[in-house]
Design a protein around this nucleic acid. Structure first.
Length: 514
RNA sequence: GCGACUGUAGUCUAGUGGUUAGGAUCUUGGCCUUCCAAGCCAAUGACCCGGGUUCAAAUCCCGGCGGUCGCACCA
């Protein structure tokens, strides 16, 4: 068994049912992941926390838009043009290159991509372009389209594409949402949903998949009035930044400054950018990622998306792969609304009190949910030596855990299971994600719950039967306290508001330990 | 897509031409069991797929699919 944390988490995920690769019975296809019960619940809980941090308190507007879109959408958004990459492969060394870039380098011409496939092929031949690494012959360029294409309807004439981001839904529905929001600005439209990207080489389990869940928010504001009313909530939050300058000079050690300072020093171009980066940092902390394992890294102009004027990736340092991107913070300017306005002819401008009109500008924080699931698991994971076994424990933040509490009779006789089942049903009725377990020894059952990250386990013993007292065992400390069944729900409420286990009742010690 | 390595029960692993394909663990049933993967008995369960070589293939060869790493890609 490997000691690599990624392998260990993958193994637990498969065995217990957090996630595994899809289509297994047919041999599998890279880039697809099926979430099992624990994974789904963890994912939903992360989603719920995202809504708390980014939507509920601000009163933002949430939508749910189709995955399949007519081609017009991505013509307008620029994705179709920007997805048409002509790739060529060296016959000798097998390296792949973007054909248009090779031509641009050789003949110092720009926007070769726009000429189309035939012209690119001709230019490669005419200019006798060889492999820049080994000098070998290049194969004919092929079109690499990383959007999935499909047909809409029966004729096959209407080409559709699966959305590679959820954002276009927010732009296309901007006008209606704006009106439904009583034409107040600034405001934001948010969406959580599936997107698809036909990745050339998906890797690393949930890290890069061809279908994944995204949580996106588009904040619309007046460029002449760019202030953010909630900035004060996060302005003193310290963030670690790699500025464009630092990235260019390959500086690896980020500066640590407050959100306010980053805005004042014009490192961040808008208050909104700073606000969402501050919120995102707090969000990641709530997911269990410590400050020093987070940073924001600026995109250089050449790596930015076609729509962006400034982008920061929020990165998390994982033991498995080093720094990985978990969210992107893009300044999309008025690019998208402008593009859809031109393409559709629909006016998307907003009127100011002084009767002038403007196209709102957009700040977009965008999270990949699958990556967050993995990050949460990795940061929660510890191994503990107990007797002669290694115990796997996921110390998930309490509300993120797939299950809140497990209920188990100490032994499966003398009426203990009946009492336990009664309490189990009581907790289900109270809305807890509860799990009942009477299989195997008590230690085994605790171990099972540790491995799926259930924070609490309540054990029904003879004291429960005789005196109405049960023990609650804490996942993180393995400490046990005695509580009266009558007070159970009250104590759980306290616990889920943040109380320590020791505040719930007197410490219980088993006979063996006494 | 290229290269290297790789694929055996749910999971981990032994087996390198002829094995009833072995073990560990998990799971299930039973016995037992008063707090951290206890014990005993029993049961279920595997050679990634397709070709080829051979009297004989989990084992050798070819192709496909999957995985890990590196290159490229990542709007």
């Amino acid at each position: 068994m490997s000691n690599n944390i990624y392998d260990i988490i993958s193994e637990i995920s498969k065995r217990r049912g957090f996630f595994w690769s899809s289509f297994e019975i047919y041999g599998g296809i890279a880039g697809y992941v099926t979430y099992g019960d624990y994974g789904v619940k963890l994912k939903r809980n992360i989603e719920a926390l995202w809504r708390e941090y980014f939507i509920r308190k601000q009163g933002f507007f949430e939508i749910d838009d189709p995955i399949t879109n007519p081609s017009k959408v991505f013509e307008a958004s620029g994705h179709l043009a920007n997805f048409k990459e002509y790739a060529t492969i060296c016959n000798q060394c097998g390296r792949g290159f973007r054909a248009d870039h090779l031509i641009e380098e050789k003949i110092a011409k720009e926007h070769v991509e726009a000429l189309g496939g035939e012209a690119i092929k001709q230019l490669l031949i005419e200019n006798k372009i060889k492999c820049p690494v080994c000098g070998g012959e290049l194969k004919e360029p092929t079109l690499v389209l990383t959007m999935f294409q499909t047909q809409i309807g029966a004729t096959g004439n209407d080409i559709g594409y699966m959305r590679p981001e959820a954002a276009q839904g927010m732009f296309m529905n901007f006008k209606r949402c704006f009106q439904a929001n009583r034409e107040r600005i600034p405001f934001a439209i948010c969406q959580q949903g599936r997107v698809m990207r036909n990745e050339i080489s998906p890797r690393r389990g949930v890290h890069r998949t061809r279908e994944f869940d995204i949580m996106e928010l588009e904040l619309f504001f007046d460029p002449l009035n760019p202030s953010c009313p909630w900035l004060k909530d996060v302005e003193n939050e310290k963030i670690r930044l790699l500025t464009e300058d630092m990235v260019e000079k390959e500086v690896d050690d980020p500066i640590e400054i407050t959100v306010k300072e980053a805005i004042d020093r014009k490192i961040l171009l808008t208050e909104w950018q700073g606000y969402f980066m501050g919120v995102s940092k707090k969000f990641l902390c709530a997911l269990g990622v410590s400050d020093d394992k987070q940073r924001f890294r600026a995109h250089l102009p050449n790596e930015r998306s076609h729509y962006s004027s400034q982008t920061f990736d929020q990165e998390v340092f994982t033991k498995s792969w080093g720094w990985i991107e978990v969210s992107g913070h893009a300044n999309r300017t008025d690019y998208d609304l402008n593009s859809h306005m031109k393409a559709s002819g629909v006016d998307m401008t907003v009127i100011r009190p002084d009767k002038t009109r403007f196209i709102p500008h957009v700040i977009e924080p965008s999270f990949g949910l699958g990556r967050l699931v993995y990050v949460v698991m990795e940061f929660a994971f510890i191994q503990k030596q107990a007797n002669n076994a290694k115990r796997n424990i996921f110390k998930f933040p309490r509300d993120l855990a797939p299950y809140h509490i497990s209920i188990q009779p100490l032994v499966s006789k003398d009426g203990l299971p009946e009492i336990a089942l009664h309490i189990y049903n009581q907790l289900l009725d109270a809305g807890y994600r509860a799990v009942y377990d009477e299989g195997g020894s008590i230690g085994r059952r605790y171990a099972r719950q540790d491995e799926i990250g259930t924070p609490l386990a309540i054990t029904i013993d003879y004291d429960t039967k005789e005196k109405g007292i049960a023990t609650i065992r804490d996942r993180d400390t393995w400490m046990q306290v005695s509580i009266s069944i009558k007070e159970l729900e009250e104590k759980l409420k306290l616990y889920y508001k943040g109380a320590e286990i020791s505040e719930l009742g007197p410490i219980f010690q088993s006979n063996e330990e006494q």
